[in-house]
Design a protein around this nucleic acid. Structure first.
Length: 1048
RNA sequence: GCCGGGGUGGUGGAAUGGCAGACACGCAGGUCUCAAAAACCUGUGAGUAUAACAACUCAUGAGAGUUCGACUCUCUCCCUCGGCACCA
């Protein structure tokens, strides 16, 4: 070896070079319409936060990229896009902090992020990035809003909403998080970092240290505050008119899909989604109300009734009172004169309390009597109706039936208010005595007593029997309730897509809205899917006489649209409604967005009557932007030089191959959709989606909802690619470790098959979702305010991207995450250096000049390489399996084991083995393996056969990509292993006595299954003898080729 | 309170019924060197024991159970992390 060979591993000398080369050559760019084996490898796009890309982001992206590179080497056309989720409160808050306009900040952070992202060495398709604040993008976000509106899924309603005084905007339920608060003197400190809140929370220095005035609390009582997930400011409730998406209409489908066996998601995330949807099956029971002061009991007449939701009607014989929420509309109707003052006072106090005060103070129950009674028709028991603030208006029907004997909360209330307690359930302990202590409150199990026709039944049986009975009598109706609420879209902020709606007073005066237009009447599909009745409807039902028939679905649909009077969507061809560049963009705190101060923005003309009208001035929630971004990527065409060149090459072919797709017939014009239907049907659903588990209920639920809606409306059609071989990943690894997808799946793809044939669920956007772990630092998520941000840049400068990538993946299992520490990164650098040196020794000095292999490289057969080959093939098998299951840390350790072997047997590892090894390492360390591979195989490149004519005609990747000029290791086929080579000559048999290892025997493989031989050898061994002598053997356990155990 | 994940050397972790601690980090000693760095080699769970080897015992949060055999399966408990929560 002479000195001029770069024996030293210096990543800085080649990493940037390859990044540039890959991008120029389009190594990771596909022909979006024709790639024969599309594989959509999606990762969650980052929001460009204050601190730039940190190692936590890099950890996630690297893990996804390794999967993509692996799949590419399996022969798939891997599409791996990236973009920026740059709209929204988060970016705006940061812009505010640094005193820049959001759009200026966006420009700066975009540049910085994309620079950092390029340095990660990921196989991104840089010709198709998506930025949510790009008018070309949010034009379609607005289009989606309009589509939701036209399909009856977007509506405007007055509601109690979460208001963040810090961010000066409303928040969706999902964006409000609980945080524990301990009392510290007269003020409370919001604990930071104590919960997972911090994981998705960027806390500013100010808010972190801000002391929040708290209600006086009993000393030592901790409580949970509802705070804004962005800034940790406690949220308050405000009554505002807002836009909502009717996600509740999809609650059942969103739930049911998670139970399908092909729903390939982590159990943890599935459960999270199910819990959030929170389906409960119960019954609404009607109780007629009597007012003692006005009506003698004997008349048994009622004007009003109260509806109560319960999941436990079995205990209804034990009901002794009713409690309604202070906001309940029935209160003013039924409160008797002598109680009016007290009730009014109580309601006023509770209105002044925040939710958390009510919750906390509610533990010592308070309440007032209304003077009215409800009749339990089961036993004609007269139940006093109380008002108490532990009952929440937005849960169930806002009224509960008190069964103090069998509900802890009801028990507490009954004790405080001195209400009767009846026992109707006997538990396992057989206690039938009077219930006087909380421990006696039997909630979950037991048999019914004192309950008429239910006596003796187990509670489960009693529940359904009681429901049957109540329905039969017409006293109740089974209902299903969900915890999921409709998605609040409006934000009183600036940095978002303006909500594309127009309000026209003239049309409103005439009672007109878009729903009365010709266009609306032409829409044939139901405008309003059946759904759980929204809150407002539930409240109304409380006052409806049960004898009045409920409205039918059509009637309801019409009623549903009453709110819309005067509202018109911005016509699609006028989108986008551009966000104007204004100076007073900061949030106002008045309950209206900054755009409300700009007549030049909101003054417009009515799309219907042409008269003066006003635009909506609120903007969309960021989660709307990110709910569909993955649909946009494949259809974005940034027209880079590469693409332009390719298009020239392929124009002719694509014209020839053009076929009429069913989607085209449905949609008149591609310009009406955010995507090219041909491309979309080629790439969807997404093959693999990998992202953080912290998005369990937010992003993922919205995304699934959006997909389902778009598909229902016919905007997305999927081409069902049925291959002969299918497993849940849609491909299968053969024994030799190479993907064996049939060549003809392109043809089969034109065949329309029933959905039930599919190995995945087309009603879901992702064939699988995988949640990676979160990298934290010093126990908290990295954030600038915490001063714990670890930026990859320094490490990349010091050790190179490959080292950092491999190091991050070696830290632990990919779904685990963990606390970042850099103590071992130098070790990873040393290991890659070792690989570099060892491989470099195989680069023949002569060959590097003449491109002809040295003779000694041909002499492989003369060396004793069998052991080495076996080692290599074991490694191929292990690494292949591990990467396939995203077990990157163990894959790397197997590569290390091979290198350890290699160090000890340098002369037995030849060039072809080195090349195979480099391919296994390539997904982890893409740059150095490319560099080495180019050096080692430069002579092979010249021999790459020209693309055969028939392939050229098909227009597959080989024609289009840069193979002719540049062949990348990342397009090489994954190494195969030979099962025959894995068979060992010898096996080690463990000898145990009483289950303890006492000896091990090395035997030839042919004897491995013979108990007779092994037992004989084992008994003869001196070590074993020591333990056997003097004992009689009671039993011999033999596991072929593994162990023999003597029981004495 | 309910639901879910987890608890293995000084550290990250490996092993899914069959040799506990793979692979690394760290640490200690050594080779090379005038010296250092780099590189390479050796050792490294705790203990008993030994001049050294050998050998043995104990160890996967605690305790029980199933089994010839348990980090792995079952039960009880403890701790920890995450989610939900006066949800009727």
């Amino acid at each position: 070896m002479t000195k001029d060979i770069p024996m030293r591993f210096k990543p800085s000398e080649f990493e940037a070079k390859w990044q540039k080369k890959w991008e120029e050559a389009g190594t990771y760019v596909n022909d979006m319409k024709k790639s024969p084996r599309p594989y959509y490898n999606l990762m969650m796009f980052p929001y460009p936060s204050a601190e730039g890309l940190h190692v936590g982001n890099m950890y996630a992206f690297t893990g996804v990229d390794i999967h993509g590179r692996f799949m590419r080497m399996q022969g798939f056309d891997v599409f791996e896009p990236i973009g920026l989720d740059g709209f929204g409160i988060h970016s705006e808050n940061y812009a505010m902090k640094v005193g820049r306009k959001p759009q200026e900040h966006a420009k700066i952070s975009q540049e910085n992020f994309y620079r950092q992202l390029r340095a990660t060495g990921n196989g991104f398709d840089w010709t198709r990035t998506v930025e949510t604040y790009d008018p070309d993008y949010y034009r379609w976000t607005q289009w989606l809003f309009v589509a939701m509106f036209k399909h009856g899924l977007a509506y405007r309603a007055k509601a109690q909403v979460n208001w963040c005084p810090g961010c000066k905007t409303v928040l969706a339920d999902e964006q409000v998080v609980g945080k524990k608060v301990e009392q510290v003197g007269k003020v409370d400190k919001v604990e930071q970092g104590s919960t997972g809140v911090i994981a998705r929370n960027e806390v500013t220095k100010q808010s972190q240290e801000k002391e929040i005035a708290a209600p006086s609390l009993p000393t030592g009582l901790a409580m949970t505050k509802d705070v804004c997930e962005r800034c940790s400011t406690p949220v308050v409730k405000k009554e505002l008119e807002q836009w909502f998406f009717r996600i509740t209409a999809y609650a059942e489908r969103l739930l049911q899909n998670t139970y399908k066996p092909i729903f390939n998601w982590p159990d943890k995330v599935k459960l999270g989604q199910r819990n959030w949807i929170g389906k409960k099956e119960g019954i609404n029971i009607n109780y007629p109300i009597i007012q003692l002061s006005n009506n003698p009991i004997s008349t048994n007449k009622y004007i009003y009734n109260v509806v109560v939701f319960t999941t436990r009607p079995d205990t209804n014989f034990g009901a002794t009172f009713i409690v309604v929420a202070p906001e309940h509309p029935i209160i003013e109707k039924i409160t008797t004169p002598e109680y009016i003052e007290a009730v009014k006072a109580y309601i006023k106090t509770s209105q002044n309390k925040s939710k958390e005060e009510r919750v906390t103070e509610g533990r010592k129950k308070t309440g007032v009597f209304t003077g009215s009674y409800a009749i339990n028709q089961l036993n004609n028991y007269k139940m006093p109706i109380w008002v108490a603030d532990f009952v929440l208006m937005d849960v169930g029907t806002g009224a509960v039936v008190g069964v103090p004997g069998h509900d802890k909360r009801d028990f507490e209330f009954a004790v405080v208010m001195n209400l009767p307690i009846k026992r109707v359930v006997v538990g396992k302990d057989g206690d039938t005595s009077k219930i006087t202590r909380p421990e006696q409150v039997q909630e979950l199990e037991g048999k019914m007593i004192n309950s008429g026709f239910l006596n003796g039944l187990e509670i489960q049986t009693a529940i359904s029997k009681m429901m049957d009975y109540l329905e039969e009598k017409g006293w109740g109706k089974r209902v299903t309730t969900y915890h999921l609420r409709d998605w609040l879209i409006s934000r009183q902020r600036y940095w978002g897509a303006p909500i594309p709606m127009i309000y026209c007073q003239h049309c409103a005066d005439k009672g007109e809205s878009w729903f009365s237009s010709e266009e609306a009447k032409k829409m044939s599909f139901p405008r309003r899917p059946k759904a759980d009745p929204p809150l407002a409807e539930k409240r109304e039902s409380i006052q409806i006489d049960p004898r009045v028939k409920p409205e039918d679905d059509n009637q309801r649909a019409e009623n549903d649209n009453k709110w819309a009077v005067g509202w018109w969507p911005v016509p699609e061809d006028q989108l986008p409604v551009t966000l104007p560049d204004v100076d007073d963009w900061r949030p106002t705190g008045t309950g209206r967005g900054p755009l409300a101060g700009h007549p030049e923005f909101y003054k417009t003309t009515c799309p219907n009557c042409g008269g003066a009208a006003q635009r909506e001035t609120d903007v969309c929630d960021t989660f709307l932007d990110s709910s569909w971004y993955y649909l946009r990527y494949p259809s974005v065409n940034k027209k880079s030089n590469v693409i332009a060149r390719r298009n020239e090459m392929t124009t002719k072919q694509s014209q020839e191959v053009e076929i009429a797709s069913p989607v085209r017939q449905l949609v008149r014009n591609d310009n009406q959709l955010p995507w090219d239907p041909d491309i979309t049907q080629h790439w969807f659903p997404v093959d693999s989606y990998i992202g953080g588990a912290e998005h369990t209920v937010l992003h993922l639920l919205y995304t699934r909802f959006t997909w389902m809606a778009l598909r229902d409306w016919g905007f997305i059609k999927i081409k069902y690619q049925i291959s002969n071989i299918k497993d849940k990943e849609g491909y299968k690894l053969t024994d030799s470790g190479v993907a064996n997808a049939p060549q003809n799946d392109v043809i089969l793809a034109n065949e329309v098959r029933p959905e039930s044939d599919l190995p995945w669920d087309p009603s879901e956007p992702f064939k699988r979702f995988f949640a990676h772990g979160l990298i934290i630092k010093d126990g908290a998520k990295m954030s600038k305010s915490k001063g714990n941000v670890v930026v990859p840049d320094e490490y990349i400068k010091l050790y190179g991207t490959d080292t950092l990538r491999t190091y991050l993946m070696f830290l632990g299992p990919f779904d685990g995450g963990g606390d970042f520490r850099d103590s071992g990164i130098a070790g990873m650098y040393r290991w890659l250096s070792r690989v570099w040196r060892l491989a470099m020794e195989k680069v023949p000095q002569v060959a590097r000049v003449s491109k002809v292999p040295r003779d000694e490289e041909k002499t492989r057969d003369t060396l004793d390489t069998r052991g080495t080959l076996q080692m290599l093939h074991k490694t191929i098998k292990g690494v292949t399996e591990d990467i396939k299951h995203l077990h990157y840390n163990t894959a790397i350790s197997k590569l290390m084991e091979f290198v350890n072997w290699w160090m000890e047997n340098t002369d037995q590892v030849d060039t072809t083995m080195v090349i195979d090894f480099l391919k296994l390492l390539a997904p982890f360390a893409p740059h150095m393996t490319e560099e080495l591979w180019q050096n080692l195989s430069v002579s092979r490149v010249a021999q790459v056969p020209q693309v055969p004519p028939e392939e050229k005609a098909r227009g597959t990747r080989d024609t289009l990509d840069t193979r002719v000029t540049f062949s990348s290791i990342h397009h090489e086929p994954w190494p195969k292993y030979d099962e025959k080579l894995l068979v060992e000559d010898q096996v080690t048999i463990i000898v145990q006595v009483n289950g303890k290892m006492r000896d091990s025997l090395v035997l030839s493989t042919q004897n491995a299954n013979s108990q007779t031989v092994i037992e004989q050898v084992a008994r003869a061994s001196a070590k074993t003898q020591k333990w056997l002598s003097g004992n009689s053997i009671k039993k011999v356990v033999f596991v072929p080729a593994k162990l023999i155990n003597f029981v004495v």
